[in-house]
């Protein structure tokens, strides 16, 4: 992904105007270490990634060394240090999905959005990532887009599945 400054990202409207500022998120938690992960999760879900300034603010707020915050932020799968797209496409690669062609669904979704590997589209509309089991194994293969789960997929259904999110994104733009 090309390196971009915060300003450039802002100008692309990535940081949605209704996102709660990092400082405000932090104020809702007491500053003890047990709240570090919940606070990072909230920032991730509001801002779609953990920026360097955000990590620094978290470090100051919790009185934890920056490397320790960085360690946590890079250990868990739900965090991303790079901006994720407005819509998160999570393709399940649990065992049941794997044996029913989950990898092919992932490859198809990537091709459909012009990505060569898991990651985010250049317009920051979509992120496509594999996920190890969404727990809907009887419906394999399964994809989750944002909060909505789709089951019994075939490659040919992937374009139709992504379409409504595309048009919504275009309308918003």
């Amino acid at each position: 992904m090309p390196a971009q400054s915060e300003d450039e990202l802002l100008s692309q409207g990535l940081k949605m105007s209704d996102a709660i500022p990092v400082e405000q998120i932090l104020e809702s938690w007491p500053g003890s270490a047990q709240n570090l992960i919940p606070a990072l999760q909230k920032i991730q879900s509001e801002h779609h990634y953990l920026s360097e300034p955000a990590l620094r603010a978290v470090s100051r707020y919790f009185h934890l060394p920056l490397p320790q915050v960085f360690h946590v932020a890079t250990f868990y799968n739900c965090f991303s240090l790079e901006p994720r797209g407005r819509h998160e496409v999570r393709v399940c690669l649990g065992t049941a999905c794997h044996v029913r062609g989950g990898q092919r669904i992932l490859d198809k979704a990537l091709r459909e959005l012009g990505l060569s590997e898991s990651g985010t589209t250049s317009d920051y509309e979509f992120s496509v990532e594999p996920v190890r089991c969404l727990g809907c194994c009887a419906l394999a293969p399964v994809v989750r887009v944002d909060q909505r789960t789709y089951g019994h997929l075939q490659q040919s259904r992937v374009p139709r599945l992504l379409k409504p999110y595309r048009s919504r994104a275009e309308v918003a733009a």
Partner: peptide
């Protein structure tokens, strides 16, 4: 309720405890 952050190893009990305490699992 404490939400996990996406790490399989946190099903192991000592890793789970580390995660609840705000550390890596």
């Amino acid at each position: 309720v404490v939400e996990g952050a996406g790490a399989f190893v946190c099903g192991e009990e000592t890793a789970l405890i580390a995660s609840v305490e705000g550390r890596v699992g």
